[in-house]
Design a protein around this nucleic acid. Structure first.
Lengths: 153, 153
DNA sequence: ATTGAAACAATCAAAAA
DNA sequence: TTTTTGATTGTTTCAAT
């Protein structure tokens, strides 16, 4: 089953205004609000719409430091322990298995360099599987969004 | 002006359930719903809570390919044109100025390798300022969240 | 920050496209 | 199967405290 143009318009609208009311969207797209509610419920059920969240200003919350850490794993048998560490560490926002020089690319948000050091030297290097790491500190962020380029007909 | 424990609890709750009703939060945190509404309005006004959005399943929407592209800029005078290109390209979800070998680290979501090639060979390499690029393809993603580790007292 | 009233939005069942 | 309508329920908002 495919997405029609109304589904895409709803997804696009909620990407920008995740708390838009069904009646707002109903008016904007010229359908009834139960129709919007139904579409959204179905998108949720299909797992396309996974949930609702907020965009935060990390620096205002004391998170002034963002870093990307490339991690090479040596002992592949300890990979589950590494992934469990990643899962349990709230400062690690993203963890991707990637091609290229490192095995995993981590996006980390932390309060300061002391906390970053803690994560690299104790958290990551403390994992039996972790070999080399390479850290790139974010100096500034020009763009950061979750939006996907959806093209409603 | 600082955040108190109720502010942090609201932020944390909305991070997980961005459409939670004020009355739900009011009951959970044992205050009235106008109190929740007021806190949220103030967090929005201060720019701490920047907005509401949704989490999408990118593969189900046809975005099967995620890549991180490290970009080196040569002619620094064309940097604004590069940033304008980044801004105008919906497939580029993130662009960070970073320390280390490349100047910028881009997170890109696209439909397939053909589209990735288009972005690298025409989009990026078409910019006067862009020198070398290094692309890491995401094989799988173990973690991907916007949440910050907030510690309510 | 709370209370209570008014305005508004979401949901459900029935029915129609 | 999906949408609309209209009634009901629940939520947000506002003024007063």
């Amino acid at each position: 089953m495919v997405l029609d143009s109304l589904d895409l318009k709803i997804i696009q609208a909620l990407s920008q205004q995740g708390r838009a009311t069904w009646s707002e969207l109903a008016e904007r797209f010229e359908v009834s609000s139960p129709a919007i509610a139904d579409r959204v419920r179905r998108l949720e059920k299909r797992g396309i719409l996974q949930g609702y969240t907020i965009r935060l200003d990390a620096p205002q919350l004391g998170y002034d430091l963002t870093a990307f850490i490339s991690v090479s794993l040596e002992k592949t048998e300890h990979r589950p322990a590494f992934l469990a560490y990643v899962e349990s560490t709230a400062e690690i926002q993203e963890c991707h298995h990637v091609t290229g020089s490192g095995d995993y690319l981590l996006k980390v948000r932390c309060r300061n360099t002391a906390q970053l050091e803690q994560i690299i030297s104790h958290g990551l290097k403390g994992q039996a599987s972790v070999g080399q790491t390479h850290t790139a500190i974010v100096l500034s962020t020009a763009k950061e969004t979750l939006n996907l380029p959806l093209t409603p007909d």
